[in-house]
Every structure is written in structure tokens, then in C-alpha cells.
Nucleic acid binder design. Structure first.
Length: 269
DNA sequence: ATGGTCGATCTTCGA
């Protein structure tokens, strides 16, 4: 079967509900992982999302910030949110697909929203950056201890790990999301878990790949000062199944867009 | 050249 999994930092699921429907209709996703849903669980638009063809929805939320959700055409065998850095921030959700998912049955899906880290890349003076580094360190330890079974890790990881994941490596070396301490932490945690970066597996450097363009850029498409912050990783046993990774850049040009675009991996399993 | 723009919430914070 062809299994399509999409990750998208939606930056308010209530505001962009119609855009979720538009995107998944065009893509044909089997599973959609959203970040920054920005609503507490009580006001989550569950019924509307189910109406887009995803009867099975797992989500955690908070008032105003964070929040992650997994929408699925297939039932879940298990759902497990997890706290990180001793907080109950809604930044991670894991599910396992049930037997109804056919060849995708048993695959674990991890949806992450890594802290952005604030503006100053110094953990001594910026607690947000310290939080981000701690979060990445905990992910590394978790990756190393993880049970070896088929899994896909997606999300807004808020790090652009390779030189050509940003519009200018040199100009962003001291900008949060691309500093050496972050990119090294990201590589370490990926290698610790044996994870395969699906986009770079198919499209190695030096080809540029971006998934995010700042709201502050007056002409984002022309300037094209993007960064690759949104990722799909597979466990090593699924690496050979990666057929496509599509970055839906057009969504950045929609009316009232998210600053991130959907990224979809197609696996043949 | 240190801005610029969003979203949620309640005038400021996080991104």
C-alpha cells in the first residue's frame, strides 16, 4: 500500500480549519499530524476534522499555545501523550496504528512540536533556548532507549539541521534554529535513534529545501528566505519504503496562511 | 539598519 503521512504546523487549527480540508483533499493523506493547534481540548474542532475523512483523532491542547493533533483514516491501537522537560506542555503525541491499517498496522507515529527557543542563542541568559536544548537532549535519550519497531517521527522540530536547509548558512549561524549547538543536537538525536531523514534521503544536499517562511518577510516568495524546520523521519526498517517527500509550498501563498507549509511523505509498505 | 508580521488573549507574549 501507499501510505501518506503529512505534517503541518497550522498555527491555530480553528483559524485555518478550511485550509486543513483543502490541503488533505489535494494530498490524499492517510494520517495528518498538526502542531500549534493553539486551543484547549474543549474547543478543538473535532467534528469538522472528522468530516474531512479522519474518523480517528488524538489531540492534546493548551489555551493559546502549543497543542498537537493526529488525524487518521485508520483506528489507533494506542495513544500516548508524553511530557518533556518536567512540564505538561502539549508538545508531543504518539499513536500506534491498529490492525485495520493493513500493511501500516503496528507503525508508531510520533508528532513533535519542539520549543522554538526565543531570540538569543544563549542558554545562560535565555531560558527559552535552555528549554529547547534540554528538550532536544531528552529526545536524544528517548531515541536511544526506544523500542526497535517500525516508526515515523514527524513535526515542527524548529531546527534546520543542514547547510542547505536555510537560505544562507553563513548568515544564520548565529540565528536560533541553525546554530551549531542546535544542529549538532539534532544530528545526534537522529543518529541515536537510527532515524532516517526522509527528505534528505531522497534529495541530498546541496539542493535547498524549505518548509517555513517568516511572516515578517514582505515578499516571502520573491525573497525566498526560508528554512527547513518541519521534518519526517522514519525508523531504519522503513527507509527503503520512502517513495516521495512533497513540500506543499503553494499553501504559503493561500489567504491568511500559516508560516509553515504541509510536508508529506509517501511510503510504500 | 535590530526592524519587520502574525495569532491568542487581553495589552502582552510567543513565534
Amino acid at each position: 500500500m501507499h501510505f501518506k503521512i503529512t505534517t503541518w504546523n497550522i498555527n491555530s487549527v480553528r483559524l485555518r480549519l478550511d485550509q486543513v480540508g483543502r490541503a488533505v483533499d489535494a494530498i490524499g493523506s492517510d494520517v495528518v499530524c498538526l502542531q500549534e493547534t493553539k486551543c484547549p481540548e474543549g474547543c478543538f474542532p473535532l467534528t469538522a476534522l472528522q468530516g474531512f475523512g479522519f474518523p480517528h483523532v488524538a489531540q492534546v491542547g493548551q489555551k493559546g499555545y502549543n497543542g498537537v493533533a493526529i488525524l487518521s483514516r485508520f483506528p489507533f491501537a494506542s495513544v500516548a501523550p508524553q511530557g518533556w522537560c518536567g512540564r505538561d506542555d502539549a508538545r508531543h503525541l504518539a499513536v500506534t496504528l491498529g490492525p485495520e491499517a493493513g500493511d501500516a498496522a503496528g507503525i508508531a507515529i510520533h508528532n513533535f512540536y519542539v520549543p522554538a527557543g526565543g531570540d538569543v542563542p544563549d542558554p545562560a541568559t535565555n531560558p527559552k533556548f535552555a528549554h529547547k536544548l534540554q528538550f532536544l537532549a531528552e529526545m536524544r535519550a528517548w531515541s536511544g532507549g526506544r523500542e526497535r519497531r517500525p516508526a515515523v517521527l514527524v513535526g515542527d522540530l524548529n531546527v534546520a539541521p543542514y547547510e542547505h536547509d536555510v537560505w544562507s548558512h553563513r548568515q544564520l549561524l548565529n540565528v536560533v534554529s541553525h546554530t551549531p549547538v542546535e544542529t549538532e543536537a539534532m544530528h545526534a538525536l537522529r543518529e541515536e535513534g537510527g532515524w532516517v531523514d526522509a527528505a534528505r534521503h531522497l534529495t541530498p544536499e546541496p539542493e535547498k529545501i524549505y518548509t517555513w517562511w517568516s511572516y515578517r518577510s514582505p515578499d516571502w516568495a520573491k525573497a525566498d528566505k526560508g528554512r527547513r524546520l518541519d521534518h519526517v523521519w522514519t525508523s531504519p526498517d522503513l527507509a527503503g519504503a520512502i517513495r516521495r517527500v512533497d513540500v506543499h509550498r503553494d499553501a504559503r501563498g493561500w489567504e491568511r496562511p500559516s508560516d509553515h507549509v504541509p510536508v508529506t511523505a509517501t511510503l510504500e509498505i
